[in-house]
Amino acid sequence: MHEIVILGAGYAGMATAVSLAGRTRRRGDVRITVVNASERFTERLRLHQTATGQELADLRIPDLLSGTGVELVTGWVTAIDTGAKRVRVDDEREIGYDTLVLALGSATDTGAVAGADEFAYTLDSRTTAEALARRLAAPGTKAVAICGLGLTGVEAAAEIAERHPGLDVTLIGGGAPGAGLGPRARRHLDRVLDRRGVRVRGGVRILKVLPDSVEISGGETVPADVVVWAGGVKAPALATAAGLATDRHGRILTDGTLRSVSDPAVYAVGDAAAIEQGYGTIHGTCQSGIPTGVQAAWAISRELDGRAPRPFRFGYLHTPVSLGRRDAVVQFTRPDGSATRFALTGRAAVWYKETVSASPWPTYRRLVRNPGPGRLGWRRGGTFTR
């Protein structure tokens, strides 16, 4: 029996699991196990909604995996022994593997600035987002500072300002919000933030997070009852601790087929992998995560059949950004992620963004039924494109 163990059931991990289940369902010599901290699927694309007290769909991983033959083990991965090919769960149970897929995602890097880990909230999980929602709704909360001008920070700022119009919301960081968007999309984003009453402090360095404020360059302090940290991410330390080759963010270095360059029994997908393309390293999004999971499943199934895996190629299509429930912007991109002149704003963008956010779960169901080329843009020759 060839044991395949997938660590993590986020966007990329679930894509790997269901695609592998579909590809190997006629084989009797393969067993697939998924290890995840919870039975509930976390819609990370929607955590800014959870952070404002909105109820999301209760998507259950066992429901999706029912009938696929995939076993779900609920628990925290605490160690990986690549020499013995074993994974430790909750420091109590060990699971052996022949092929390991790391899909543990990433977490907000709160270690870069003093006080962020101690005093700031993050949008890493349903648990942390719910804790933020409770704090925002607590009596006496008046000012919120969101550290980080990337899309996570922008979406959080717009959502909080819309759901809690009485709060003073400040968005802080270097550069400007929506820096990677085209001119039309940036103008719309700026107008919406201004209409929501969000103050933007761009072009500054965040020096320290305190219980009641954020220190920034220039000797200034931004008062805040609540601080949300959305400045950069890092992969879990498990891969580095296991001796796998990783980059400075802890992501596993992979070859063209998403196999670890230091261990042929290990694949990495989604935010856990440092995946190089001609234009640079892929940045972690649902848009790229699901295709990496499908690629890993395809590569593993080819390997099981005695065929060589083929390389992965990916091109971006769009950058959808929600700006609360009633507004959004969608920037269409070139394959390298750079902005084109085409963008959607307003209601059309809201519909588009919601369609994108709701698409992973139906996609997984389709992959169970049909994991082959065509469903996700596979080209003849086996590379993933737009």
Results as ranks from 00 to 15, higher is better:
Asp58Thr: 11
Pro362Asp: 08
Ala241Met: 13
Thr42Tyr: 12
Arg184Pro: 02
Ile146Asn: 00
Ala21Thr: 10
Gly67His: 12
Ala37Met: 14
Ala245Asp: 12
Glu92Ile: 09
Gly372Pro: 05
Glu354Phe: 04
Ala156His: 00
Leu193Cys: 04
Tyr352Trp: 14
Arg135Leu: 05
Gly337Thr: 00
Ala37Thr: 15
Ile32Met: 05
Lys142Met: 09
Asp98Gln: 07
Ala12Met: 12
Leu304Asn: 07
Val70Arg: 04
Arg310Tyr: 07
Gln49His: 14
Val192Cys: 04
Val144Trp: 00
Val329Pro: 02
Asp212Gly: 12
Pro360Gln: 14
His2Gly: 04
Leu72Met: 09
Leu253His: 08
Ala348Cys: 06
Ala237His: 13
Gly346Glu: 09
Tyr11Gln: 14
Ala15Val: 12
Gly10Arg: 14
Ala51Tyr: 01
Ser288His: 00
Ile290Leu: 15
Ala129Ile: 04
Gly53Lys: 14
Gly203Val: 05
Ile95Val: 13
Ala51Lys: 09
Ile290Thr: 08
Glu71Phe: 08
Ser38Arg: 15
Val214Glu: 03
Ala297Thr: 06
Thr78Arg: 11
Thr141Asn: 08
Thr152Asn: 10
Gly96Ser: 10
Ala15Asn: 12
Gly10Glu: 08
Pro320Ile: 04
Leu376Ser: 10
Val222Leu: 08
Gly315Cys: 01
Leu47Cys: 08
Thr221Ala: 14
Val350Leu: 06
Thr355His: 13
Val70Asn: 03
Ser288Lys: 00
Val35Ala: 02
Ser213Tyr: 04
Ala37Phe: 13
Val204Trp: 01
Thr257Arg: 13
Asp327Asn: 11
Ala348His: 08
